[in-house]
């Protein structure tokens, strides 16, 4: 087994944070197992990215071609499968991201290799991969282990590990002598689609009054709006509210929406799934109101009220009206 592999994730010419997070964890695993840390970089015009990665891995293996300009699960799978056949790693780390979720389960079947997905922590002991995961909406933690292998495949939850690793001698660059795959006709990349600009930019607000599933009905959004108006803030939301089209997608905070860092983030009826936390945990002060004392939001909030937002919010509105804030 020839090392710990980390698959670099990039989009439109920039490496994504998950790459560095996985390299930090990969470094730890490689040291412990006494094997090299290898970063795989597939893309087009990648020399700058390769340089950045050399500071974080023992070896950077690159494959360059126009067909690898953007991620495509089948071109990536073809390259990885060929590379694997020349000598597999002990474990390969791939992001639990839109890319990794598209690629890795197919790769695991094609290679006949065990895969553990969406891991917050990864260790290897006695020929077995041990992964920490969070399940049931973040309410339960599990340790999942492989019962066959190595080699192993693992997808890693974004935001799980601090980076960068302490400086190390620059890694060795190696250009892979593999044939370039072609994008198949039956699945063809057309374009990226950017979100239309919203009139209201939630990333610029100092105060966000953010609503989740607990808002219960579209009519109740006016309550959050009234509070936001009184506070000089803006209404944002978690995924379900945007899914139900109660607010435009541009108001959604989280992994697939926007990342916000307001002075105050008031989370009303938001359970706080990790995808949501990714988008708001950098807020200066987080205040959460939720009926469920076990809601994960209370683990990232600074202040919490365990209660019904339909009691808390009207009381707050009334109080502010009694004593206008300015």
């Amino acid at each position: 087994m020839s090392g710990i592999w980390v698959l670099a994730e990039h989009r439109e010419g920039s490496l994504r944070e998950i790459t560095f997070e996985m390299l930090a964890k990969g470094r730890e695993l490689a040291l412990q197992q006494g094997v090299p840390l290898v970063c795989l970089l597939l893309g087009n015009q990648i020399s700058e990215m390769a340089k950045d990665l050399q500071s974080q891995a023992d070896q950077v293996w690159t494959l360059e071609g126009a067909c690898l300009e953007h991620f495509h699960s089948e071109t990536y799978q073809a390259v990885l499968a060929e590379l694997w056949s020349q000598g597999p790693p002990l474990a390969a780390l791939i992001g639990h991201t839109a890319q990794g979720m598209e690629l890795t389960p197919a790769l695991s079947v094609a290679l006949n290799i065990p895969l553990i997905t969406d891991c917050l922590d990864v260790s290897i002991s006695q020929e077995s991969l041990r992964c920490v995961r969070q399940i049931y909406n973040g309410k339960i933690q599990s340790v999942t282990v492989t019962t066959s292998g190595p080699p192993f495949l693992v997808t890693c939850r974004p935001g799980s590990w601090a980076w960068p690793s302490p400086p190390a001698p620059p890694g060795q660059l190696k250009v892979l002598g593999l044939s370039l795959p072609e994008e198949p006709d039956y699945k063809h990349f057309i374009q990226y689609l950017y979100q239309e600009n919203e009139a209201v930019d939630i990333t610029q607000a100092d105060i966000l009054v953010s609503i989740g599933r607990g808002i219960e009905a579209v009519e109740n959004i006016s309550l959050a709006q009234e509070l936001a108006d009184l506070l000089g803030g803006v209404v944002s939301c978690s995924r379900p509210v945007a899914d139900w089209k109660w607010l435009p997608k541009g108001r959604q905070v989280g992994c697939s929406g926007k990342t916000v860092r307001p002075k105050i983030y008031l989370a009303l009826g938001i359970s706080g799934a990790f995808q949501h936390q990714i988008g708001m945990k950098g807020s200066e002060t987080i205040i959460a109101v939720n009926k469920d004392p076990k809601a994960p939001i209370f683990q990232v909030a600074d202040y919490g009220i365990i209660g019904d937002l339909f009691q808390v919010v009207p009381a707050l509105i009334e109080k502010i009206k009694e004593n206008p804030l300015k």
Binding site: K139, I140, Q141, Q299, I305
Partner: peptide, 21 residues
């Protein structure tokens, strides 16, 4: 027949935890 299995479940570690009002 499986290649992965759940070994144990626990409650997640507590985070910074909100001050509850």
């Amino acid at each position: 027949g499986s290649r992965i299995q759940v070994e144990s479940l626990s409650l997640p570690p507590l985070g910074k935890q909100a001050r509850i009002l």
